[in-house]
Design a protein around this nucleic acid. Sequence first.
DNA 1: ATGGACCTTCCAGTGCAGGGAAAGGTCAAG
DNA 2: CTTGACCTTTCCCTGCACTGGAAGGTCCAT
Lengths: 129, 129
Amino acid sequence: MRIGELAEASGTTTKTLRFYEEAGLLPAPDRTANGYRDYAAEALARLGFIRRSRTAGFTLAQIREVLDIRDAGVAPCRHVQDLLETRLDDLDRQIADLQALRHTVAQLSNAAATVDPTDCDATTICRYL
Amino acid sequence: MRIGELAEASGTTTKTLRFYEEAGLLPAPDRTANGYRDYAAEALARLGFIRRSRTAGFTLAQIREVLDIRDAGVAPCRHVQDLLETRLDDLDRQIADLQALRHTVAQLSNAAATVDPTDCDATTICRYL
DNA sequence: ATGGACCTTCCAGTGCAGGGAAAGGTCAAG
DNA sequence: CTTGACCTTTCCCTGCACTGGAAGGTCCAT
């Protein structure tokens, strides 16, 4: 399978595939006589895993960790379980932070909608913020 | 006021102050005879505004817009109101996205905690993701 | 006069995940 | 035989908000 076919089949771009190879996420494939990359069918499953992991919000570095464990012949279950729990904690923290921020911004927005701007003072730049 | 004093008074760094000047957020201050930046007291209020805006999640580009309007002699009230509402919408979207993602990751995490990993298959890399 | 705390400029890098463009090789169809 | 769709490598660029470091000037106290 050539790089363009794999890119289309996996829903990504040739650029990204070369980048993943460079980044150690995809093993360097065989080359045909003319130097073209020649991917085996497994690459597609691997890219599916990468895509699902990205969708779950994992970084390429985290995905590479999992792949390295798998490539060492070990099932990465324990590591993936830990990653999922950590990711859940991170998400909870991010959501809480954003909700707190939303609260602050909502108050500012309400104030801006109700307070009369006539006594705006140039030295404070803007009384709404 | 020299740059170090202003940095300390505003709770930032000299590096950041030069960066803000370069980025058009702080007007270029006067210079003393020896070439040192010599800030007027207004710079402190301006930095306070920048800090509050950053806390509300605005980008430097957005803050610069507001400052440019103010510097043109116009009260930026209307623009700030719009920015606040847009920011609120953005936050709502971000929060909703993260909550949807949290839901997905929670399901994956639950599955990983309950499903027996014995029938893991190397071709799918990891059955949890 | 010398040390240290300031200040100046300019250049370059950080992290993340790629994207763009140049300059060239290869292959099948018309 | 040429056109166009592929493929190759290499290098640099993006956005965001800074941060680090080098090389040098200035000021004050000791």
